[in-house]
Amino acid sequence: MTQIQFNLNTDVLKEAVMASNIDTVMKASIVLVLNAVMEKERDEYLQAGAYERNSIRRDYRNGYYERDLLLSIGKVTLKVPRTRGGDFSTTVFERYSRCDQAFILSMLEMVVNGVSTRKVKHIVKQLCGESVSKSFVSSLTEMLDPVVSQWASRPLNTKYYPYIFADAMYIKVREHNRVVSKAVYIATAIDEGNHRDVLGLKVAHSESFEAWQSFFQHLQERGLQSPKIVISDAHKGLKAAIAKEFVGTIWQRCLVHFKRNIFTNLPKKEMDEVKFGLKRIFDVAEADEARRFKDEFIDRFGDNPKLERTLRTLEEGFEDAIQFLNEPAKYHPYIRSTNSLERLNQEVRRRERSIRIFPNTQSAFRMIGAILIDYTEEQERKKILFKK
């Protein structure tokens, strides 16, 4: 059996390890990983797996005892394996006392976030001096799946969310020996205290009415009540699913996307007055004021043939883009667009670039879920600071 040797070359490791930002939310995941490492160490010491009978085994299992380990992110409690003879001793605690914990946490973060087993094996080799089997790395990731799955299925009936944001992004996944695009659905929300939460995520084959409907139904099954407003882009399937699943809910078209669509149709030259007039329409605090400025804009520029497409886009999407103005003014900066959700998507994309192609759908769900959990914990900390 291979004995894991712990030799740390920090110069090599710094080049091999991804940037780390594990937070307290990852404690449970780290406990699972370290417990699995100690279990493997005991198997190697005994020279026999669980329930395995052979002639060369050295001793027998004798349960576990609990021991605390202080990490840079806080204290965790581990289940340390025992043997009947009492001679087995794990090296996990010794490792943490002799090396920089941040590097080890980086390796664990990669496991949590679904990095390919090949990359994780490379980092483990840098950390431990010996390679571990692909099946062992895979078993660690499988143990971590329940952490994300439990979070993604948690009840949503503990509070009311009047404003929900929905968006989808595309990732690359290896499936049946092919690389395919898949849609990642993410929904966030603002509660009545103006604090943000992530409601859930879903990985599907494509962005469609059926997929959005299934996603919203899943949120409702977890206890989500119909919101006052759903903020999103103008994807037809998404709009149809909102109307179907949230009867009576208002759809707010993302104002940033809408304005971009309007300005895209403008001619390139001599449009300063037109641009000023368009910006004035939406730089208001009340819906009636926006309508008045829009009517003035059409009266002034309506006969300009160069603005035909711009005016048509403005007329068709105007009312859907100003629904947020009917809500209390304190919410206006937050519910006028999907910018907050897009920033979260950008964080997912930043992490996803290091992987490029996910080995499978579950790996994608695991990594994105871990990022969203971390975001949720960050919002909770902000909430506590706000109360103080």
Rank of each mutant, 00 (worst) to 15 (best):
H195L: 10
H195F: 14
R196S: 12
R196V: 09
D197L: 06
V198I: 15
L199K: 10
L199I: 11
L199Y: 07
L199Q: 08
G200S: 08
L201K: 08
K202S: 14
K202A: 07
V203I: 15
V203C: 09
A204S: 14
A204Q: 13
H205F: 12
S206Q: 15
S206P: 09
S206F: 09
S208D: 10
E210D: 10
E210L: 12
A211C: 02
A211P: 00
A211G: 05
W212D: 02
Q213I: 00
S214N: 13
F215K: 01
F215W: 03
F215C: 00
F215G: 06
F216K: 02
F216I: 09
Q217K: 14
H218G: 06
H218N: 02
L219R: 07
Q220R: 13
Q220G: 04
Q220H: 07
E221K: 05
E221P: 01
E221Y: 09
R222I: 12
G223R: 04
G223V: 09
G223S: 11
L224Q: 01
Q225T: 13
Q225E: 12
S226L: 08
P227T: 01
P227E: 00
K228D: 13
I229Q: 01
I229F: 12
I229H: 04
V230R: 00
V230W: 04
V230S: 07
V230G: 10
V230Q: 08
V230M: 03
I231T: 15
S232A: 15
D233P: 12
D233M: 04
D233Q: 03
D233L: 00
D233V: 14
A234D: 15
A234T: 09
A234N: 14
H235V: 06
H235A: 08
H235D: 14
H235G: 14
G237Q: 07
G237E: 12
L238C: 06
L238R: 01
L238Y: 03
A240P: 04
A240Q: 15
A241C: 11
A241T: 06
A241S: 07
I242C: 10
A243C: 00
A243Y: 00
A243W: 00
K244Y: 13
E245F: 01
F246C: 02
F246E: 04
F246I: 08
F246D: 00
V247T: 14
V247M: 01
G248F: 01
T249F: 02
T249H: 02
I250P: 02
W251Q: 04
W251L: 06
Q252G: 11
Q252D: 03
R253K: 10
C254W: 03
L255V: 13
L255Y: 06
V256Q: 01
V256R: 05
V256S: 09
H257E: 12
H257F: 09
H257W: 01
F258A: 02
F258S: 02
F258Y: 14
K259M: 01
